[in-house]
Amino acid sequence: MQIFVKTLTGKTITLEVEPSDTIENVKAKIQDKEGIPPDQQRLIFAGKQLEDGRTLSDYNIQKESTLHLVLR
């Protein structure tokens, strides 16, 4: 499924993921596309910060959901 990741600069990254993918996994995909190390990434969905060990389905993230990427 496709999800979108919006950065603070207003750029939107499109990722191909599975509901069973972990947040860690998603961060690795963002690193592949954008070169941002996962340890600098914070992903936010519905106002919650997403934890590395959880999966997209844990957070009920469905196709075409938009996550927000904050760098630390």
Rank of each mutant, 00 (worst) to 15 (best):
Thr7Ala: 07
Ile44Pro: 00
Thr22Gln: 11
Ser20Trp: 13
Leu8Tyr: 10
Lys6Met: 10
Ala28Val: 12
Asn60Lys: 09
Leu67Asp: 01
Gln49Ala: 13
Ile13Gln: 03
Asp52His: 12
Phe45Leu: 06
Leu50Arg: 00
Pro38Ser: 14
Leu43Arg: 00
Glu24Trp: 15
Val70Phe: 12
Leu56Gln: 00
Lys63Cys: 03
Thr66Arg: 11
Leu15Ile: 08
Ser65Lys: 04
Ile23Glu: 01
Arg72Val: 08
Ser65Leu: 08
Leu56Asn: 01
Ser65Pro: 02
Asp58Pro: 01
Glu51Ile: 07
Thr12Asn: 07
Lys48Val: 10
Glu51Phe: 14
His68Tyr: 04
Gln62Gly: 07
Ile30Trp: 01
Pro19Phe: 14
Thr9Cys: 03
Ser65Trp: 09
Arg54Trp: 15
Thr12Phe: 13
Asp58Glu: 13
Leu50Thr: 05
Gly10Glu: 12
Glu16Asn: 11
Thr55Glu: 12
Gly10Phe: 06
Ile30Thr: 02
Leu8Cys: 02
Leu56His: 00
Thr7Ser: 11
Val26Glu: 00
Met1Ala: 04
Val70Gly: 11
Thr55Arg: 07
Ala46Asp: 12
Gly35Ile: 04
Ile61Met: 10
Lys63Pro: 12
Ile23Gln: 03
His68Ser: 11
Leu67Arg: 01
Thr22Glu: 13
Met1Tyr: 11
Arg54His: 08
Asn25His: 07
Pro37Ile: 12
Asn25Thr: 08
Pro38Glu: 07
Ser65His: 09
Lys29Asp: 05
Leu15Lys: 00
Asp21Ala: 05
Asp21Ser: 14
Ile36Pro: 04
Arg42Val: 10
Glu64His: 13
Gln49Trp: 08
Leu69Asp: 00
Pro38Arg: 14
Lys11Met: 15
Lys29Gly: 10
Leu50Tyr: 01
Lys11Arg: 07
Ile61Cys: 02
Leu15Phe: 10
Ile36Thr: 06
Lys27His: 03
Pro19Arg: 06
Gln2Ala: 14
Thr55His: 09
Thr55Ile: 09
Leu56Ser: 01
Ile3Thr: 01
Val26Arg: 00
Ile44Glu: 05
Gly35Asn: 15
His68Ala: 13
Glu64Thr: 12
Thr55Pro: 04
Ser57Glu: 15
Ala28Trp: 10
Gln41Val: 14
Val70Leu: 07
Gln40Glu: 11
Glu34Met: 12
Ile44Cys: 03
Asn25Ala: 10
Gln62Ser: 08
Lys6Gly: 11
Lys11Tyr: 12
Ile13Trp: 06
Glu24His: 12
Thr12Lys: 13
Leu56Phe: 03
Phe4Trp: 05
Ala46Met: 14
Ile36Ser: 12
Phe45Thr: 02
Ile61Tyr: 01
Lys33Asp: 10
Val70Glu: 08
Gly53Leu: 06
Ser57Val: 13
Ser20Glu: 13
Ile13Asp: 01
Gln41Pro: 01
Ala46Tyr: 08
Ala46Glu: 15
Asp32Pro: 03
Gly47Trp: 08
Asp39Gly: 10
Glu16Ile: 13
Gln31Lys: 14
Ile44Met: 06
Glu34Trp: 13
Asp58Val: 06
Arg72Tyr: 10
Gln2Val: 07
Ile61Leu: 06
Leu71Gln: 15
Ile30Cys: 02
Glu64Cys: 02
Met1Glu: 03
Gly53Ile: 14
Asp52Arg: 07
Ile13His: 10
Thr12Met: 06
Asp52Tyr: 07
Leu71Phe: 07
Gln2Met: 14
Thr7Leu: 05
Val70Gln: 05
Gln49Tyr: 11
Glu64Leu: 05
Gln41Ala: 09
Gln62Trp: 07
Val5Ser: 01
Ile13Phe: 09
Gly53Val: 09
Glu34Cys: 02
Gln49Thr: 05
Asp21Phe: 15
Lys11Gly: 07
Gln31Ala: 04
Phe45Ile: 11
Asp58His: 13
Pro38Lys: 11
Lys6Phe: 07
Gln2Glu: 05
Ile30Asp: 00
Pro38Thr: 07
Glu51Tyr: 06
Leu67Thr: 02
Gly35Val: 03
Gln62Asp: 13
Gln49Asp: 11
Asp32Ser: 11
Asn25Arg: 09
Arg72Met: 09
Thr12Gln: 07
Thr7Gln: 04
Ala28Arg: 10
Leu67Val: 09
Lys63Tyr: 13
Leu15Thr: 01
Glu24Ile: 09
Leu56Pro: 01
Tyr59Thr: 02
Ile23Met: 15
Lys27Ala: 02
Gln41Asp: 01
Thr7Asp: 15
Val17Lys: 00
